[in-house]
Design a protein around this nucleic acid. Structure first.
Lengths: 176, 176
DNA sequence: TAAGATTATAGTACAAGTGGAATATGGAGG
DNA sequence: CCTCCATATTCCACTTGTACTATAATCTTA
């Protein structure tokens, strides 16, 4: 259910097309929220129906027309309410850990190989997260209200990746 | 999509009713995979249709009859295939981080309060995870094939909780 | 230089997965 | 007497995933 609020939040930064919103979900938000393109366009329609957003068509001649969405007051209010709400940590799905839980059913070698692959993936993710973090630090001015929070979320990614790597290394050791 | 394999994995430990499977999802698996009761019964039906599991009714007089599911060879094969597959980390949804990302839109005090609440939740989770971990270590015999993996998954929980707490504390500091 | 990839833009259709809540029942426990 | 436990299931609405469709311009590569 947070997808709708994720979109509203992006619209609070300024008007955007579905294409733009999608790009954010593929990049900045992808670490903690994944969404399909189709889902975004659908959700935008719903937001408009619910009067949480309004849209206007901007005609372009060299490219397809843009349908630009703006957040409404009603949408803004709903967003702020969500932002200040406390949800209990649902949305917990980690198929890798599920596999670990069941790994007693397979060969130890395969489990180790899986952990090694996991480490590799986490290292790549870590590199990305570090890049992102320094990009934020270098490009967002210090007086930007959002800066600290963006640094914090990317810091989370970094710490999480490191923790995963450390955990997987320990786990491999424990298996040998 | 892993729900089906989570259930199959549980059935590999031995025949179970929907009630039993549900209990596992509420307890042992809840940290990395949440599922509703309704979903589990539905999925069991599908597993039976797909011939990944078979069921028999065990009549009871004092309690409702039990519908006991067994994994079939076909199911076992499908499970092993899943277990040895590499999926890229989908299933990523963390509404708390989403809120952090947008917290520049709210009062700093509220963000800090949210972080403090997050720490509390993580501390409770941590206590549970530690309890679970020592329970595994104390009750599962050393020669049990699954032991190491169960310790590893609960270790993950512990590390993750600690990391979250550390992160949230740092973040609070960075906001002050 | 022609064919192919990518970008910017907006969807649609259908299948599958999920969440939340309700229903039914009889025994045991407080 | 009321609630909890064990047990199974159903309904409905909502969310998500997968894949496909369109178009015109520009960039890439053989």
């Amino acid at each position: 259910m947070s997808l709708r609020y994720g979109i509203l939040g992006l619209l609070k930064f300024g008007p955007k097309t579905g294409y733009d919103v999608n790009a954010y979900f593929q990049h900045s938000l992808s670490f903690f929220w994944k969404a399909q393109t189709s889902q975004i366009y659908r959700e935008l329609n719903k937001l408009e129906e619910a009067e949480y957003a309004s849209s206007e068509i901007v005609v372009q001649y060299d490219k397809p027309n843009r349908k630009v969405y703006h957040i409404t007051d009603k949408g803004s209010e709903a967003f702020m309410q969500w932002l200040n709400s406390y949800e209990e940590g649902d949305e917990l799905r980690d198929s890798f850990l599920l596999k670990m839980f069941f790994s007693g059913f397979r060969d130890k070698k395969k489990s180790i190989a899986a952990l090694e692959h996991y480490i590799e993936t986490a290292e790549n993710e870590l590199a990305l997260a570090e890049e992102e973090s320094s990009e934020i630090q270098n490009t967002i001015p210090k007086n930007n209200t959002h800066r600290k929070y963006w640094i914090a979320t990317s810091q989370y990614e970094i710490m999480h990746c490191k923790m995963k790597i450390e955990w997987a290394e320990n786990t491999i050791k424990s298996l040998m």
